[in-house]
Structure formats: C-alpha cells, structure tokens
Nucleic acid binder design. Structure first.
Lengths: 204, 204, 204, 204
DNA sequence: TATGAATGAGAATTCATTCAT
DNA sequence: GATGAATGAATTCTCATTCAT
C-alpha cells in the first residue's frame, strides 16, 4: 500500500494528541516527533495549530455523524430508531476512541471553542434524536421528554465509559464496582438503551 | 469583614481558571492578575502549578463528596437513598459550577492525571452508590446493575447539563431541542432520577 | 554557653555556603533555612548580600593573616621565617576550611570582586613573604626569586590540597596517585616547604 | 570565510562567561546577547544550561590534555618529560585563558560538580605525571614524591599566575612584589620547573 | 529583634511559527 | 514537499529585598 499521505499522518497523530492532552496541552514539537514529520512540514500542510485542530475534528466528527444517521434511517419505528441511535453511536465511539475524549474536553468548555464544522456534526446527531422522540411522542409510544437531557445521558454515559477504559483496566479484576467487561461497549450500550427506553415508553 | 486569606483567594481564582481553560491552558500570569495577587505570592503559597492544581481540586472535591454522603445517610430506603444521591449530587454540582468542567477534563484523560486526593473523593461517591444498589438488590427492590454504568450515567448527564448551561443560554428561546429551563438543575435531575429508578425497580 | 549571637550564626553559615556555592550560587532563602534564622533577620543584621559577603570574608581572612604574621615574627632567620610562613599558613588554612575555597573562587575572577578588606589581608601575607625573601637575599642565603611566584606556589598548592580533601577521600585507598594521608596537611606542607627552600637556598 | 557554526559560537562565548562569572553567575540572556544569538537558539543547540556547561568544558579540557600528553611523548628521559609536562601545560593554559579560571572554580567545589567528561581529561594529565615520577624514581633519578602534591603545585601555581594576570597588570609598574613580566608565562613556568626538579633530583 | 507575607525584577526554559535552502 | 536552523513572545519559576506587625 502506498505510504500514508503526510497530511493525513499528521491529522491522525494530532487527533490522538489532542484527545490525550487537549488543545493547549498538545505541543507542536512533540507532534512532529510522534508522527515522524518535520515541524515545518506540519505548517506546510496545516497553516497553524488552530486550523489543524479544526481539520482534525472535522475529519473525526463527520463520519461518526454520518454513520449514526445512516444506521437510524435503515429502520422504521421510533423504538428501533432509538435503539440504533444509541447502540450504533456507542459502537462508533468505541471504534474511534479519540472522539469521546475530545468531545468531553470541548463540552467542559461549554462548547465555546469547538470549531464550527465539528459543532455542526454534533447538531446533526441531536436533531436526529429530536425527530425520533417527537415521532414517538406523536405516535403515543413515548412520553414527552426533553431531547437535550436524553442527548446528555447518551453522550455523557458513553463518553465516560470509553474514556475510562484504560483506568478501569488498571483496577483489580474483582473490583466490586466494576462488573462490566472493560473493553466491550455492547453490554453498556444495551443497559443504557434499556434504561432510557424503559423510562420513555408509555406502559399500557 | 476580614479579608480573604491570600492562599484561599488564589485557590478560588485558580479553580475557576482550571475549569474554564484546563490545566495546560491556565496561565500563571493571568491567574496572578485575575486574583490581584503578585505572581511570586502564588508560588509562596503553592510551590508550583501542579501543587496548586492539587490543592484546588482537593478543596473543590472534598466538600462535594461530604455533602452527598451526608445527605444519603439522612434517609433509609434504597429508593430514597438513590433519589438523594442523584438529586443532592446534581444540586451540589450546580452550586459549584467549576466541579463539572474540571471533572470532565480529567475524565477525558481517563483520570490518569487526576491528583490522588481528588480521585479519592470521587471513589467515596462511587462506593456509596455501590452500597445503595447492593442494598436494593439484596432487598429485591432493584434489579442487579453495574454500579459503574449508573455512576457514569449520573456523572455524564449532570456534568454535561451543567457545563453546557452557557451554551444553551445562547440558543434562541424557541429552540425545539432545548425545552428545559436552562439554569435550573432540578427538572433535569428529576428526569434523570426517574429514568434510572424506573429501569432499576423490580415491577410487581 | 550562651546562644551564639544571631549575627554571628548568620556569618558562620554564610561563610560555608559562599565557600561551597560561590557568591552567585548562594541563595538567601537557603541561607536562612540552613542557619535557622528568618530571612528578614538576615537583612536586619547585614544590610544586603554584598555586605554580608564582605563581613563574612573579613571575619574569615583577618585572623588567618594575623596568625601567620604573628607566627613568623616569633623566629629570626629567613629560613625559619619561611618555614613558619608556609607551615603555619597551611595549618591555619586547614583549620578554616572555607578560606581556601573562597580564596580560589576570588582568584578565579582575578580578584576583581574581592571585598577591599579581605584583599588587604591577603596583601599583608604577601608583603610578609616579600620581606622574608628580600632579607634572605640580602644575607646571601637565598637566590633572588619573584615573590609573587613563590606566593602563588604556596597559595595554589595548599588551597588545592585543602579543597580536594573531600574528593580524595572518595578515592579508593590504594589509588597510586594519592599516597598522602588525605586529611593531614602537615606532610604536604613539609614537602612544599622543602621544595621551595631547596630551590631558593644558595648551596655552598 | 565560512561563518562560524552557531553551536560553536555559543560554546566559545559561554566558555568565556563561565570563566569570568562562574556557572551560577552566568546569565543565559547575557550569553545570548554577547554571542549575538537568539536565546532560543542556545536551547536549540544545547538543551539546557547544565548541558551547555558540560559541552563547553569538554571542548576546553580535551585539547589541553591532548597537547600536554603528546608533547611529553616526544621526549625520552623523566627529566625532559617533567620539563615538557610543566612548560607545555603552562603554555597551553596561557593560550586558553578560560581554562584556569574554570578549573579553579571547580576545584573550589572540590571537583564535585565538574562534568564527568572534563574530569576525565584532568585525570589523564595526572596519570601522565604519575608515570613520569614513577619512571624517574625507578631509574633512581628522582626521590619518591606524592604525585598529587606535585600536581597541585603545578596546577595551583600556573592557574593562579594566569588568573591574576589582569590584576597584576593593574598594579603600579614598580611594585616590588611583582617583578615578573605579567603576560609572559615562560619565566614563571621556568622557575616552577626548576623549583620542582631541584627538589626531586637525587644529588650525587 | 523576630517573622510570615508580599513583591518587582529577573532568569531559565518553552512554544508556535517562520525562514532559507 | 521536506528540513535544519532560527526567533519573538510567552510561560514557569526564582530571588534579593522589603513590609507590616
């Protein structure tokens, strides 16, 4: 296979470093070293640090939003859509481990510094959830609920689950607070989905 | 009124700045300026930046853990304890707005850099939740559930809710995704509590 | 015994630190800590760092010059005077271990920064040596010799001998370059005296 | 002429400043200014102050040791070797004026802080002297003598002679203690050599 | 005299960015 | 496109000295 283009190699490495150390904590010298690229080359390909951050986040967030939305569109009922929304989102986050860390840091700043293109991708996900909940409510399947709270429950739970994987792997195996399989997201997303849908469903 | 001790004034201001900008993004010069203290005074009272961070987080996390644990101990049944755990934690977080932002940033790093003293406070909260769930399960009130997932749902939801308050206040009033009162945590914690307890309770 | 006066305690400790770390390398905070005196107290007793240095060096150099000169005056012949000059100076230096280190540092700067009062004491010693050599030459006992070179031989040899005591004590016992008893100055000053007097004496 | 490499320019200038002001007294800002190099360039080439010091001393000490050792090897008898050892060392020191000052400061600290690579060069010189003395003793030319004391006499005398050149040049011309030509090392090294060899030779 | 706190001026080092080839 | 070197503007931390009590 042809060698990875330099520009992409930089983005991949930068994504990891932004996830691990945040924007301010990521140092261009270290980035150059870690991706085996001359420091000046980074600037040849990416103008400056802020632009690189923007590029990295866009490349990271866009396919995740696409994947979730496409998956939801393959099914029909609000319950199925909600299930896909949660589980596919969880699965996709787990496969792109840097997404959760970066998103959490940005949320910690209230989203104020998140590049516009990345923010739009998050909004696409939220709009999709809103449609699911409204559709379910209008069909008298779901109780009314604030979509933002549901969104936060999904994001907050999954992101924490993923970013704490290394921490939990370092716990003793028999830790009583840590019963789930550390590295497998599916049981967690299953429980999260059940919790949310249980509380939304209008029981008869 | 007696003047606030310099050391405390520094911690208060540093806590806010660490919450807003993260550890790496907090600049000691700006901190000195914002708390109207000579730069050297910061070092007189707090050795270095890392120690200041440790001191600030300990001062922030300890009373929150204390408040939650004390509140839970005032009631008896697992359901009441869970309700207090969630709602008092939410209320306390809302009253200490910097806690959520700092915790989220630390969780984004997997907790790897969190000062030990602060981490211990988080573990006290998790242990308490674990006891509630186990007690409820042994009384056949609750289904078995992974306490870590519940912990993540509580933390993740509340933290996101709080850190996005400024973001949401900037949205148009009629935004359809943003129905909740922005600044009041209680409806959100009420819904969160119901969601969790609904899914935990063994129905008869 | 009554407690050592604070001012003196500071001078004693400062002398050691100036010897060990030089003027620039001596930090007032560390000095305060090492002599168990409040930092502000140092300034109460000694105006500033430069004055303290002056005071310390004067207190250190004066009695050494006095001792050497007095010892030389107790004997009559040039040879005896030279012997006393070298051996008593060596002995006195060995008893005031910080003198050699401080003098060497000052000489490394060409003496340019040596406080005037300390420099005068060194000149008293050099003048005394000059008188001995001139007296010996006028009595046709000594060949003519540059007093400054002899002075340097004495100072250079003894100072190096003393300042390297700790270094040499760390060498293995059987080091072939290090045959002399490490801590006893007398054999060294004996050899130094013989070397110098041998080369000065007019043989008949 | 090709421009001097920046790294070397920094070392040259740093060597002079370390000699004049010592390690602690040398300020990186001043160094940058004096060698007309950006401050950050110093760190680009030399990591930090301690490494720069190490690099400077190694570059200074190595050729001096080489020169002395090579010169000694060109002659055969112990007396000739001793003469070369002293005179070539003196001449080389005089041509590298910063060597003496730096060595004296390091000796004032007992050599404890001297970078390893520089210390090794000094040991090469001492070992060479030791061989000369042992060879002379085994041929019944020299009396036995402690090589360390002889080493100290040579180092101490020459270093003091060189570092005090500026001081002595500022004395009045007719100063009776200062008969030697200030700037010419040869008469001094001649007298030093005679003094030492006179006292070592076994007379018949 | 003694002391905890404060401070302005520095001093070492870092960092994002640019330049010359 | 790539790279070693350079640089100005920070940024963290230190230090001699002073202040208030």
């Amino acid at each position: 296979m042809a060698k990875l283009k330099t520009s992409q190699k930089i983005i991949d490495c930068a994504t990891r470093m932004f996830a691990e150390h945040g924007y301010a904590g990521t140092i261009m010298d270290e980035l150059a070293e870690q991706c085996s690229v001359n420091k000046a080359s980074i600037y040849y390909h990416h103008k400056d640090k802020a632009t690189l951050y923007d590029n990295a986040l866009t490349a990271l967030f866009t396919p995740i939003a696409n994947t979730v939305i496409e998956a939801v569109e393959t099914v029909d009922t609000p319950v199925e859509k909600l299930e896909h929304h949660i589980k596919i989102f969880a699965k996709t986050c787990a496969e792109n481990p840097y997404f959760s860390a970066i998103l959490m840091r940005e949320m910690a700043s209230g989203g104020a510094n998140m590049p516009a293109r990345a923010r739009e991708q998050m909004q696409r996900i939220l709009f999709m959830l809103n449609q699911i909940l409204q559709s379910g409510a209008s069909q008298h399947i779901f109780k009314p609920a604030d979509p933002l709270i549901i969104h936060f429950m999904i994001l907050g739970t999954i992101n924490l689950y993923i970013t704490t994987i290394p921490l939990r792997q370092s716990l003793p195996e028999n830790d009583e607070c840590n019963q789930l399989n550390n590295t497998d997201i599916e049981p967690a997303s299953e429980q999260l989905y059940k919790t949310i849908v249980d509380s939304l469903l209008i029981k008869q």
